[in-house]
């Protein structure tokens, strides 16, 4: 049995929004961005996390790192509960968990040199500036495929792919165990994206990293992940081994997502041949009753409008929350 590096239990985040609207007249409302999510990430694996914009996948990533505080639920890292840790205890844990962001332009301070950007996490965690720090920074720069002469240069002197390499070096310099990649390759041109995906995989092998890979591109997620979780409006609707989820998805939403991926050859054109889901993702401020997908689901039943399905495990390691799957057992 593999041991989970991270486990989330009933993790929930509610944002209070709208109270300050124009003239302060708008009614306050609650947005359940992440709603009772329970999942685990095993040491050394890559868990892919997919779903449409607004489904809560980025919020979930930040909750696991406690970059934002959960409204309810618990997070365990390497076997110990970190939900209630105070600032200084949390700082020690945070050495082991880092994040790589989508936008390499916004995530790097334009006035800092590459050396300072990569050294900053070391200095925050108690290293002294000097030869030893510089050696660590140079070593990490080499690991991400940048030459040592990049040290004295500034972010604007680099291309998007190179900037993402700098962001990765900064995340890895403390030798963390968990990296949350939040759309880390989404903004890159495809020819460069492949380089960064290869780099992430090489570093994972070399440094024994565990990844939560958040992305909306389903083919990149399939390539890099061991298991994949699918979110819809704050809920995890399906989790399985990547081959299972792509070849035999059970949830109608997962099936619709995969069917919507454009063909890889004109002979497989999907127009008129594949089932489409109609409409847009509903507002998280006013989510549908029962199963949140019922407004777009081609297989909707009466029960779906009334009761939210719970995550069940129809096959070992394959979890799904759908009344269609629950029904046979009832």
């Amino acid at each position: 049995m593999t041991t989970p590096l991270v486990s989330a239990t009933g993790l929930t985040k509610v944002f209070e929004v709208g109270s300050s609207g124009l003239f302060g007249l708008r009614k306050p409302a609650s947005l359940r961005a992440v709603d009772e999510v329970s999942l685990t990430i095993n040491a050394g694996e890559t868990l892919g996390l997919v779903g449409e914009s607004g489904c809560g996948k980025s919020t979930l990533g930040r909750l696991l790192l406690r970059l934002i505080e959960p409204t309810a639920g618990r997070i365990a890292f390497d076997g110990s509960d970190i939900t209630g840790l105070g600032r200084s205890a949390m700082r020690a844990v945070r050495r082991s968990m880092q994040i790589v962001f989508q936008d390499p332009y916004g995530a790097l301070n334009p006035r800092m040199s590459v050396e300072d950007i990569i050294a900053e996490p070391l200095l925050i965690h108690g290293a002294k500036p000097g030869a030893e720090t510089r050696r660590k920074v140079t070593e990490m720069l080499g690991k991400v495929g940048l030459p040592a002469r990049a040290l004295d240069r500034f972010p604007h002197e680099f291309s998007g792919g190179q900037r993402q390499r700098i962001g990765i070096a900064r995340a890895l310099v403390l030798h963390p165990r968990l990296i949350v990649c939040d759309e880390a390759v989404s903004a890159l041109d495809v020819s460069v994206q492949a380089q960064i995906v290869n780099l992430l995989q090489d570093l994972q092998r070399e440094m024994g990293l565990t990844y939560l890979f958040i992305a909306h591109d389903l083919s990149v997620v399939r390539h890099i992940s061991d298991r994949v979780a699918v979110m819809y409006l704050g809920k995890v609707v399906e989790i399985a081994d990547k081959r299972t989820i792509y070849s035999a998805p059970l949830h109608p939403y997962t099936r619709a997502l995969i069917a919507a991926v454009p063909a890889q050859h004109p002979a497989q054109r999907s127009r008129g041949r594949r089932e489409r889901i109609a409409g847009d993702i509903p507002s998280a401020l006013n989510p549908p009753s029962g199963c949140r997908f019922h407004t777009r689901c081609p297989h909707v039943m009466a029960v779906c409008r009334e009761r939210a399905p719970v995550l069940t495990e129809p096959a070992p390691g394959h979890q799904v929350a759908c009344h269609l799957i629950e029904a046979p057992q009832a």
């Binding site: 449409e52 914009s53 909306h216 389903l218 619709a256 997502l257 069917a259 919507a260 991926v261 454009p262 999907s270 594949r274 489409r276 889901i277 109609a278 847009d280 993702i281």
Partner: peptide
């Protein structure tokens, strides 16, 4: 756009 909307 999201992939389901892109297809539409």
């Amino acid at each position: 756009l999201d992939v389901t909307i892109q297809a539409q």
